Computed example of a mutant assay.
Amino acid sequence: MKIEEYITKAGRTCALPDTCHRIQELIEDDSSTMADIAEVLSFDPIITGHVLKLANSALYNFSSQVETVGKAVTLLGADAVYNLVLATGTSTALAKLDTSAIDLDRHWRTSINTALIYKRFAKKERIKKADSLFVTGLLHDVGELIVAQVNPAAATKCEQIRSNQPLHLVQQEVLGFDYATLGAMLFKHWRLPNHMVNLILNQHNIGSSLESQLMYLSCRLGLISVFPDQFDMDKMLPSQLVEILGYSKNDLDGAMDWANIGAFSVFAIVCPQANSVY
């Protein structure tokens, strides 16, 4: 089956909520205000509820509760709020897919850990769009959910873990492409920002930009943090990447520990339909 067919068939089931598109339009409109964004959100109580829960989660650790959309927009800024909307909007859309062929808990645990690790290192490096990178990390493996809906037998085969073998190699063997390529095409179909599309597409390449290097690192650490008995850090992380970034083993272990703790408060918000051990 061609990759375009997966997008077409999945597109009949899930679509990005209008709220995501509307807020993206406001972000791109220089004449729009914070009040405009808050007003759009006020008409979507489900996404608003999720955004406020994320704003009060381990993602931000504010000293006081963020109780209103207006306060969230003021504290976080329009771009950060858009990325929280995108995180909840996409998870809502993807929840409509039949993912019974895979372990959904495993998918989201790995994705959330990847996202939290990515954001942690982005903040460490003082990258301004850390919230955008969190969403990119969260949805880096979204192609798996598409395959689970359209071709469940193939998704089950791709899920088989082989110790210290990157999963995208199994996906290429079974499908002829990997989840990164499929996910990037879905992002493009949804008209999401180009930098997110490119990071998803090239997540298995170290690349030359700091964002791409951290994407590669975070995807590998996300997997290792969930399956420490199956994946060894020394075998999964190229030594030249660690040298380029200048991180110690304590830095890497600390990021995985932080993600494992933070995932507890994020999981139920992003994936309420899963029966998690959390």
Rank of each mutant, 00 (worst) to 15 (best):
V66T: 08
N113L: 04
V170K: 12
I117N: 10
G77E: 03
P166D: 14
D251S: 10
A55I: 07
T13N: 04
A101S: 15
K53D: 09
L252I: 15
S42G: 08
A38V: 06
A80H: 02
A274E: 08
R191N: 14
T92S: 05
K123L: 13
L59F: 06
T92W: 03
C219Q: 09
T13G: 00
Q213L: 03
L201T: 06
Y179E: 04
T13K: 15
S209I: 08
I3C: 04
E144V: 13
A130I: 02
Y6F: 15
I117F: 13
I269V: 15
V73C: 00
F264W: 07
S91P: 01
V150T: 12
Q172N: 12
M196Y: 05
L97N: 03
N275M: 13
V69Y: 00
Q24A: 11
V197P: 04
I127K: 05
L175A: 01
V277A: 11
Q273M: 08
A148K: 02
H189N: 14
V277S: 11
E243S: 08
I161S: 02
V266S: 03
D234H: 13
I206C: 01
Y6Q: 02
I102D: 04
S209H: 04
A55V: 09
A255K: 12
S276N: 13
D131H: 10
T8R: 03
L59D: 07
I7C: 00
A101Q: 03
H107W: 08
N202F: 12
K129E: 14
V51M: 01
S212Q: 15
E28G: 06
D105R: 08
A35Y: 11
I47R: 00
F177K: 02
Q65E: 13
A93N: 01
L252K: 13
I112N: 11
A255F: 05
T110H: 06
S208D: 12
N56A: 03
G70H: 00
T74Q: 10
R22P: 00
R120S: 13
A58P: 00
N202E: 07
I244H: 03
L252N: 12
S209D: 07
Y60D: 00
V277P: 09
L52H: 05
T181I: 12
G246C: 04
C14M: 15
